[in-house]
């Protein structure tokens, strides 16, 4: 299920930035060749980042890409390691929860002031910010889910599994992924 969610979020994320790239390219070309300006991509770029950022938080969470330093951690006895892994996921969930709360505040203010972007489209800010908030909420729920699971693994003493699923991603693991895809690409003649 997580994999399907991951795929979906990644496709949305990618589509946002591909579309943005094409739009910006068009705008730059129009500006250069015809002296004509669409005046929208700057604004859209900001919204794309806001929405894309929240999606990417969740994807980095699933991929265990949020950086943790394992220099000391990997040398600790298993119980310590397990406790730290669990603590990390709880802290991450708290931070995600905080971001969710802060985003809620932002939306509240925007509604109260009926804020409107200072651009040609005069976009009511509530539109992009609602989507941004949904992204932030997904991140929050995902992080809380993972934290609850890690706590459960710790309490029920399944330390090996906790280790396996919550250990910071080491350079070695990250590299294995890269090497896999590199060797897949190199079907051509080698030097």
């Amino acid at each position: 299920m997580i994999e399907r969610l991951e795929n979906m979020l990644a496709v949305i994320f990618g589509a946002i930035f591909l579309a943005l790239s094409v739009l910006i390219t068009l705008e730059v070309l129009l500006r250069k060749l015809f002296g004509f300006s669409l005046q929208g991509s700057h604004e859209l770029g900001g919204y794309a980042l806001a929405v894309g950022a929240t999606l990417s938080f969740t994807l980095a969470l699933f991929g265990r890409n949020h950086i943790r330093i394992d220099i000391i951690h990997e040398r600790l006895p298993r119980l310590f390691r397990a406790v730290l892994n669990c603590l990390s996921s709880i802290l991450m969930a708290s931070f995600a929860g905080l971001l969710g709360y802060l985003a809620w505040n932002v939306i509240g203010d925007t509604l109260a002031y009926r804020s409107v972007a200072q651009t040609s489209w005069a976009t009511p800010l509530i539109y992009p910010q609602s989507i941004w908030y949904i992204g932030q909420a997904i991140f929050m729920l995902a992080a809380i889910g993972l934290a609850v699971k890690s706590l459960w693994l710790l309490i029920s003493g399944k330390l090996a599994r906790l280790d396996e699923e919550y250990q910071p991603k080491s350079a070695k693991q990250e590299l294995e992924d890269e090497l896999d895809s590199a060797s897949q690409r190199q079907r051509g003649p080698s030097l």
């Binding site: 002031y113 804020s115 200072q118 800010l125």
Partner: peptide, 9 residues
């Protein structure tokens, strides 16, 4: 004034 007119036109 100009940037904040987003919240207070």
């Amino acid at each position: 004034m100009s940037p904040n007119s987003r919240d207070a036109p």
